[in-house]
Amino acid sequence: MNVLAEVFNAQLWSDVLRMTTPILLLALGAMITDRAGVLNIALEGLLVFGAFAGVLGTGLTGSLVVGVASAMLASGALALVFAWFALYLRGNIFIVGLATNAFAAAATTYAAWLISGREGSLRYAQAPTLAKLEVPLLKDVPFLAFLSGHTIIDYAAWALVIIVAFVVFRSRFGLRLRAVGERPVAARAIGLPVRRIQYAAVVISGLLAGLAGAQLSLTLGGFVQNMSGGRGWIGLVASIVGNGTALGSAVASVLFGAAEGVANSLQITAPNLPAQLLFALPYLITLVALVAYSASRSRKKGVLEA
């Protein structure tokens, strides 16, 4: 009985949906860059940058619209830097991605210290937070009520699943994007601007990561060091496990979002379970999913025989 009550707990499902949003947005961005042949290790840093810029923008102007816009612009700009170092200066893509993560962590903590005098956190007392929007009718439907009462970014994330699926698989840009990722030499031979398309893909993933960061920090109403909590990596895995499709990424994101939602809710419902083990849970589930996917997918590719 207790388990059943837990499963149908509307609050838990609502939490899961909220936890899914940033992972989903990151996974969509990872999917787009992956389709262009760029493995986006920088997502974690892009997320942190967006979360910080969102708080800063909202705090300085009092406007959430400005906050969300500055989150997206900041992450987009950092993504451009990432792309420039990787594509123009031809740095190793993993290393430049790690550099982006390191830079975002260092720069946001430093800036928070300059602004507020506190290392690693930024909060404006009067700044508004993202409101929870109730959907009329839906909020009264028994088992679907958990779909209501989320922020505009949560709803937008699901709309973006459809938009990204359409753009990547049904539009001219998407066709070119996939050509660049699958056969860069052939794409260049038929005259596609390979570099420019890769830049575009990375910047789009930056904009999405900025939106994810805004969801994190503007729901909470402040920026905290390490608030990204590995979501950049989990989003990256969601796009891999999702087999490079928008819908697959969405399904994987819900799975990982559920891991975080359950870990969070267990902290309250089962206080004698150690919190540290619950924090490890999303990483372990992500790891298992990645290994299972890799094992099922490639008997040969990437496997080094011992």
Partner: peptide, 10 residues
Amino acid sequence: RTRFGATEVI
């Protein structure tokens, strides 16, 4: 990585 092909980067 060697057994299942899961990239060690992640």
